[in-house]
Amino acid sequence: MPQQTVTLRPYHSADEPSALALWQRSWQQAYPQIDFSKRMDWFREHWSDLLLGSKVVIAESDVAPDHLAGFVAVSPRSGYLDQIVVAPEMQHHGVGKALIDAAKQIGREGLYLHVNKDNTRALEFYRKCGFNIAGEDVNRRSGAPVYMMTWRP
């Protein structure tokens, strides 16, 4: 397998089609029982709103499709980590950790996020990155039970 070099850079509007496609593909793999193509209209609108108040960092790799290995979106004002997505074929190659480190630079005073309670892989990943469960909630869109997790420096 070739050496995988990942670079981080700020989001550009030209990244939108690849980022949206990656979001759909990644979530579809995580939850194959849900048709994420039916959620794309919602996510396009959410993405547009997200770009107004968040910083988005792109992870690129020449071995990832479209060179997009992942992205993270964080509100510098609130520290809310709304999205972190890693291409399925790039998982376990340090991309997620690099994106979390970038998020921690944006939310230097702390971060928080919501994660589905049944997403054990994500829960384990966030714990390894220093996040702790701080509460429980319900996803307003899907009704799924979620944990609120926080990271403090």
Rank of each mutant, 00 (worst) to 15 (best):
Q83A: 08
V86C: 02
N132E: 14
M90I: 03
K97W: 00
L111N: 07
R44F: 00
L20M: 13
V95S: 06
Q28T: 14
E89L: 05
K117G: 05
W27G: 00
D41P: 05
S26D: 06
S26W: 05
K97D: 08
G79P: 09
D118P: 00
A21K: 13
L111K: 08
R152S: 13
P153W: 07
H12W: 05
S75E: 10
A103Y: 07
G110Y: 11
D15I: 13
V138M: 08
R44I: 13
A122Y: 09
F125N: 09
Y80C: 03
V86H: 03
D137Y: 03
V56Q: 04
E16T: 15
I84A: 02
I84Q: 04
W47L: 04
E16I: 12
M40C: 05
Q29M: 08
V115T: 14
M90N: 02
H93S: 12
G70I: 10
K128S: 14
P153N: 07
T7A: 11
R77N: 05
H12R: 15
R25D: 04
F125S: 06
W23F: 14
Q91T: 09
E60P: 05
G79Y: 08
L50I: 12
M149I: 00
I84G: 02
G110M: 13
S13V: 13
G94H: 04
S142A: 09
A98W: 00
D62I: 01
W42I: 13
P32D: 08
M40V: 10
R25S: 11
Q83L: 07
W23M: 03
D49H: 14
C129Q: 15
G110W: 12
V85K: 01
V85E: 05
R39T: 10
H12M: 14
E89S: 08
G94E: 02
L8I: 05
A64F: 07
R39C: 06
D15C: 10
M148F: 08
A98F: 00
R25F: 02
S26Q: 08
R140A: 13
A30E: 13
E124H: 08
G70K: 12
D41L: 10
W47V: 01
Q91K: 03
P10H: 07
A73G: 12
V86Y: 01
S142N: 04
I100N: 01
Q3Y: 02
G53H: 15
Q4A: 07
Q4W: 00
K97I: 04
A73H: 07
A134S: 12
L50F: 09
F43V: 06
T150C: 15
Q33N: 13
A103G: 11
R44D: 13
L68R: 06
A64M: 10
Q83R: 10
H93N: 06
V57I: 15
T150N: 12
W151V: 06
Y31G: 03
